[in-house]
Computed example of a mutant assay.
Amino acid sequence: MKYISHESGNLVLSDTRKPQLKNHEVLVKVAAIGVNRADCMQRQGKYPAPKGDSPILGLECAGTVVELGNEVDKSWLDKRIFTLCAGGAYSEYVAVDAKQLMELPDDVTMVEGAAISEVYLTAFGALFELGKLQHGQTALIHAGASGVGGAAIQMAKSAGATVVITAGSDEKCQHAKSLGADHTINYKNTDFVDYMQSHNLTANVIVDPVAGSYLNKNAQVAAMDCQIIMLAFLDGRFAEVDFAALLRKRISFHASTLRNRSIDFKRQLRDDLVERFYNDIASKNYDFNVYKTLPWTQAQEAHAILERNENAGKVVLLIE
């Protein structure tokens, strides 16, 4: 099969063998691939695949099941699916744990399907599994125009929450507003602490891929018993923390990643998302937030778009 190699930091088409299936896996013929910052970091040598995962890039895809492991329900054969992958999605074929598959509805395209799994599962885990977001509460979502941000906005609104986001341009703020955000803050010209305090807003749940200097600022706008979920550290890995502010508001701080979770954790997260939000996904009640679709031969440009922080939403690679 063809796959995209990332040796020496360059993304080029190469050849390799199709993956060998384990009993619990299916073979997916890949149609479209969601591009994530983790892929860029892995290409740069900063985020190696966990032990046992495919060394090939790619954490999510949409495609068609073409082969089944011995323990897999036969009904999955020939079905259109979208799914997380334990690496390997930048390929014509990828082996996937069958219990993480989600059926792709007929009127959802492969491109849209490829833009769902990683961001919706990440946002769902942050907002609801860790954040315990409830109807009537307020969610503060940093990087609100990102793929995870777009998913978080729409699920939080479905749950009856007020949504505040930060983003780096007026265009990205407008994009987030079009997805349902109630308050949008361009952090380039407005301090989010000043904005929230002047609008009498406090956050019950904060989803934060920025970290660094944002930790103390988050504490300033946190409600009592706020849950802060850190997904990355775009502002840097070190910060000086005012622990008194955390204690005063009984703030809970969670550092969360999805890629290195156990297979059982990912299965349960998938089941919980399907139970609560699959009908909204299947009914296309959500905008799947695709910023740009490129042929997979242009994977290098797809990574460059993310690294320039250009995108408002997901970049998807289409296998021609």
Score class of each variant (00 low, 15 high):
M1I: 14
I4F: 07
E7K: 12
S14K: 14
T16W: 14
K18Q: 13
E25M: 08
E25P: 10
L27C: 05
V28C: 04
A32L: 01
G34D: 01
R37P: 00
R37K: 08
D39T: 09
C40P: 03
R43G: 00
R43V: 03
K46Q: 14
L59I: 09
C61G: 02
E67A: 12
G69F: 03
V72H: 01
E92Y: 13
E92G: 13
A95W: 05
D97F: 06
V108G: 01
V111R: 00
G113W: 00
I116N: 01
E118R: 00
T122R: 04
I141G: 00
H142S: 07
A152I: 05
A161I: 14
V164Q: 02
V164G: 06
T166H: 11
C173K: 08
A176L: 10
K177A: 13
G180K: 09
G180R: 09
G180S: 11
A181K: 06
A203C: 11
L215M: 15
A219R: 09
A222K: 04
A223Q: 05
C226I: 06
I229N: 03
F233K: 09
G236C: 10
L247S: 10
R250I: 08
I251C: 03
R261Y: 03
S262M: 05
R267V: 15
D272E: 11
R276V: 11
R276I: 10
D280M: 09
I281V: 05
A282W: 02
K284C: 08
Y286C: 05
V290S: 00
L294P: 07
P295M: 07
E301R: 07
N311I: 10
G313T: 02
L318W: 07
